[in-house]
């Protein structure tokens, strides 16, 4: 069966998944919403206390966590809303900069 990442506007209907259903989990991860950003959060790991308060507030699940550490942003999915920078209690850990970079 064709994988979601190979399906696009040019795919003939005969090749689409049966019933137009989606057979793999979390295929939205293939889609880049990072290009939506007009502002970008910048993470400074030295200022982060790994309190995790920003993580559940991210509407785009774009703050990865591993082994008790908050990692750098997933810029392929971060839309630059800035909610994380507002909830972070530690100055300098998350700063919003103008523009859609880095990506």
């Amino acid at each position: 069966m064709i994988r979601a990442k190979y399906i696009n506007e040019q795919t003939p209907w005969q090749d689409l998944t049966p019933g137009g259903e989606i057979y793999e989990p979390g295929t939205a991860r293939e889609f880049n919403t990072g290009t939506w950003r007009t502002d970008t959060p910048v993470f400074v790991v030295e200022a982060c206390k790994h309190c995790m308060l920003c993580v559940p507030f991210c509407p785009d699940s774009a703050i990865p966590v591993k082994g008790g550490k908050r990692l750098d942003f997933d810029y392929m999915h971060c839309k630059g809303c800035g909610i994380c920078a507002e909830v972070c209690p530690f100055p300098g850990a998350i700063t919003m900069v103008s523009g859609g970079v880095p990506s």
């Binding site: 939205a28 889609f31 509407p59 785009d60 699940s61 774009a62 392929m76 999915h77 809303c81």
Partner: peptide, 8 residues
Amino acid sequence: TGGHRLCA
């Protein structure tokens, strides 16, 4: 997951 199209 990320990659959904809800507004920022």
